[in-house]
Amino acid sequence: MTAAIHEHETPYQPVFVGDRRKELDALFPLYPTKMACILPALWMVQEDRGWVSDAAMAEVAQVLELTAAYVKGVVTFYTMYNQHPVGKYLIQVCTTTPCNICGAEDVVSAFMEHTGCTDLGITSADGRFTIIEVECLGACGFATPVMINEDVVESVTAARVPAILAGLK
């Protein structure tokens, strides 16, 4: 379907080569252990690949002198690391209590309706959108905050959803 999904089948290309490798090496002096670089390293993987595959976990394990199982334990703890390929736009709608009372569930429905996503976490057929509910984004005064990839859109209402989606190329 999407390029990201096909990554499953093609041979794994390492992330930590060239500039990325230098970037990672530059982090090592900042911490007393290599293990401490696991979160930053996983972020680099996700920035490059959009998600953290099992093969990527093994690579991170190798560059940080850990085991793949250890890395997997860490990856699965933190919800921001995508363990599956996601759409071009990952739309994360906060639905925790403060946003919930301000109509966050309607915002979720509006995104579902206007993107053609059939269910939460299921990427739309065109591969463009994946919508998930997230727990508190820490912007409760700007209900409902919606995180679209790296950007937080504040004060989203159901009515604003079509315009927001139209702004996504």
Binding site: Y31, T33, M35, A36, C37, I38, L39, L42, W43, L64, V74, F77, Y78, T79, M80, Y81, V134, E135, C136
Partner: peptide
């Protein structure tokens, strides 16, 4: 990377340690 509990000080230390 997405964990409320890392706001607990000892959890945060574990998280920094990787």
């Amino acid at each position: 990377a997405g964990a409320y509990i890392c706001g607990e000080e000892t959890a945060m230390m574990n998280s920094i340690e990787g």
